[in-house]
Design a protein around this nucleic acid. Structure first.
Lengths: 152, 152
DNA sequence: CCGTTTATTGCCAACATTGGCAGGAAGCGC
DNA sequence: GCGCTTCCTGCCAATGTTGGCAATAAACGG
C-alpha cells in the first residue's frame, strides 16, 4: 500500500474536511495507479469499488486532496490532468514534445532558481510539481531538422 | 501597433501556412489586448471585426501561432488559457495563489536551471513561458507571520 | 443512540477545448 | 484571370472540467 489509511483520514480531519467512503475509494484509486494517473483512470478504478460514484465527486475530491497536499496535480498539456500521491520530497517532470516520454527530475535542481526568485522579487514559489517541456536526449540525437519542420 | 503586419504573414508563409483574413483579425485581437489575453477576450474582440468568426477557428489559429512562435500561451490555472504576442526575449510569470496578482520574471533566472537539467539529463528544455505559483511579497507579510496587526 | 448542523454527494447544466466533416478560399501553375 | 489542389473555416458533436442545487450523511453534543 502506498498510503497509510489513517494518515489521509487525519490530514483531512485536521484540515476540517470530512472522511467519506467516496474519498477513501478515490485516494485508493490514485495509489493503485502508481505514478501519474489521469483523472479518467482514477475515476474508472474508483467506479469499480463504487459504481454510483460521480465524476464531479472525483474532481472535487482530487482538488481538495491537492489543497491539503495529499496529492499533486500535473497538467502535461495533452488535455488531461494527471494526479499522483505526494511524496515527502517533491519532484518535477520533463516531458518530451517529440516522443512524449517523461522523466522525473529532482526538486533540488529547481531550489536554487526558486531562491533567486525569492531574493529578487520577494515571491515564494510554491509550485511543487512542475512540468517542463522540451526534447529528450534520444530525440535530440535523431533530429537534425528544425522543430517546426518535424512537427507534422 | 504591437506587431508588424508583414512579419506575421511571412512567418506563416515560411512555415507553410496560409494567410487568411480570419488569422489576421485574430492576431490583431491578441495585440490589441496588450499583455495576457484570455481566449474569450481574443474571440470577443475578433468577432467585432468579423461577426461570423467561429470559436474553433480562434483556438486553431492560436495553437498554430504558438507553434510558429508568434504567440506564447500560458495556463494560469484559473480555467482559461492566456495568450500573448511573443517578445524576442522570453519571460515567465509569477502568480500569487492568495491574491491572484501576477508579475513577470526574466528568462535569465531560469537559464541556469535549464542548463543544469540539460547537463544532468540530456534534456533540452523548450518551455518559454512558465507560470510559477506561490505567494507574492505582499501576501507573505500578512499570512506567514501573523503580526500583531493581523486578522481577527 | 438520537437529533442538529453543515459539508458532501449525485445529478445536471454550463463552460473551455478539441476533433470530424463538407463547403469555401488561398496559393500556385497555366 | 482560370482552374486545381490543398488547407482553412464554420458548424456540430464530443471530451475534460467546473458550478448550482436538493437530498444525504459525517461529525458532534446531548
Amino acid at each position: 500500500m502506498t498510503h497509510d489509511t489513517l494518515l489521509w483520514e487525519n490530514v483531512l480531519r485536521r484540515a476540517g474536511h470530512r472522511v467519506t467512503r467516496q474519498r477513501g475509494v478515490i485516494i485508493d484509486a490514485v495509489c493503485a495507479g502508481g505514478g501519474h494517473v489521469p483523472l479518467g483512470e482514477v475515476y474508472a478504478r474508483a467506479r469499480r469499488q463504487d459504481p454510483t460514484l460521480d465524476r464531479s465527486t472525483v474532481y472535487r475530491a482530487l482538488r481538495m486532496f491537492t489543497e491539503v497536499d495529499l496529492v499533486v496535480a500535473a497538467d502535461t498539456g495533452d488535455g488531461e490532468t494527471y494526479y499522483e500521491i505526494k511524496r515527502p520530497q517533491s519532484h518535477h517532470h520533463l516531458v518530451c514534445r517529440r516522443c512524449g516520454c517523461e522523466q522525473e527530475i529532482d526538486d533540488s535542481l529547481l531550489q536554487a532558481m526558486f531562491a533567486q526568485v525569492s531574493r529578487q522579487h520577494g515571491f515564494t514559489v510554491a509550485t511543487d510539481h512542475l512540468v517542463l517541456f522540451g526534447q529528450c536526449a534520444a530525440c535530440q540525437g535523431e533530429s537534425t531538422m528544425p522543430r517546426s519542420a518535424a512537427a507534422h
